[in-house]
Design a protein around this nucleic acid. Structure first.
Lengths: 216, 216
DNA sequence: ATAATATGTTACCGGTTAGTAACATTATGC
DNA sequence: GCATAATGTTACTAACCGGTAACATATTAT
């Protein structure tokens, strides 16, 4: 009827909503194609907004990258704590479940490994904020793993945590270095079991032995 | 004396020599900064040749990438076989040495992980020739590891090979996800020892038992 | 209603990229 | 010595990049 009607195609997206759409787009695109490979124009198109809209909500592409990593870091810990919650009071099962859940995630369609790991290879400079965020994530992971390893009665809990952390990053990257659905991942939980039991069973046995001895 | 003398600054570099210089430059630059991040101009400058010289020796930047990966794949197997040669007839020591040597290499200045692994993250398309080359490398690695695991008397040699392969890629990537000289790598050989012994000792013991039984 | 603010849209900037055309210079084969 | 081929050098193209200016339109507060 009125003349604005024909121009109604122009939809106004409010700031906060635009932010959410942009961050969702970044979450998908940066993960699937790599942060450097994705242009700001591509983000705008995928988010359904104009490029200027992005630059009114965010300082730069670098800020988008950090927001992306912060969200992925959050996912990481949500997954971690969700796994831990499955076996409260059973640290051995917590460790095993951590890798079981991880292996299950690798079979999701479009899985491309750990977002944090992938970003590391895209930014060679260790001083880049993105790299520092990843380092903080992994340092915290080591601490948490060692806590659980301690609870599981590991003789050398730090050694076990280190081994598990090595294996975790190996599992992440192996989903990319080997073909899709390659059987290598099927050995993951078995290896973890071996490592955990080798680290804990002797200690537990000696603990039991000590307990038995004390009983007598 | 003669007038060409003042223009002698122009050095003619013959094709084959230029090729070598270019491939050397690529080997260094692609590894240190990533293949996508390095421009052809940068390669030319580093190699000390003109950009046109590159395009007269090679089809495209993609060919440079493949040449780079072929060389890196060659390094990989040279390292592997050099390690194996250190303990001919002692497969258990061969496996341990493989990770000992790898860990030593991570402490080289400018170490930036496995070149083949790094390229994987830069090219999301699994059908890219670079990705296929990496996959072939890792498939062959699995076969070789299983051969040695078999010789070492592993009950489940494929499982052991899988575990070691996971751990190897984990060690590679962990040199980048953790800070420089982080102690996590110090646990590598210990973990490998645990895995190898857990896979081989029971088998060897049962073999010995069988042998003993046969003797009686 | 109207002024102030937020958003949509387009066109652009300066820089970089992979790759090439064209011509000057040098080396090589005979 | 001379013709042919290989190399050096410059300048260029067309596309893409991150980021911005400027103005049109829509929303909101008063």
């Amino acid at each position: 009827m009125n003349k604005p009607a024909e121009k109604q195609t122009r939809k106004v997206i409010h700031g906060p909503i635009a932010q959410a759409q942009i961050l969702d787009a970044v979450d998908e695109l940066f993960y699937m194609e790599g942060a450097r490979a994705v242009s700001v124009d591509a983000v705008a198109k995928y988010a359904g907004v104009n490029k200027m809209c992005i630059y009114r909500q965010f300082e730069s592409k670098d800020e988008l990258l950090l927001r992306y990593l912060e969200r992925r870091n959050q996912y990481f810990w949500e997954n971690f704590e969700a796994t831990m919650a499955k076996h409260v009071g059973d640290p051995r099962q917590q460790l095993l479940q951590f890798f079981t859940d991880m292996a299950a995630r690798t079979r999701w369609p479009g899985y491309r490994g750990c977002a944090l790991v992938n970003i590391v290879n895209e930014f060679p400079d260790r001083e880049h904020p993105a790299r520092k965020l990843v380092t903080i994530n992994r340092q915290k992971l080591l601490v948490r793993l060692q806590q659980v390893a301690d609870q599981a009665g590991a003789a050398d809990s730090q050694g076990l945590a280190n081994g598990l952390a090595l294996l975790l990053d190996g599992a992440f990257i192996s989903t990319q270095t080997y073909p899709l659905n390659h059987p290598i991942l099927t050995s993951l939980v078995q290896v973890v079991t071996t490592m955990v039991d080798a680290a804990c069973l002797p200690a537990r046995q000696s603990v039991l032995a000590t307990t038995d001895a004390a009983r007598q």
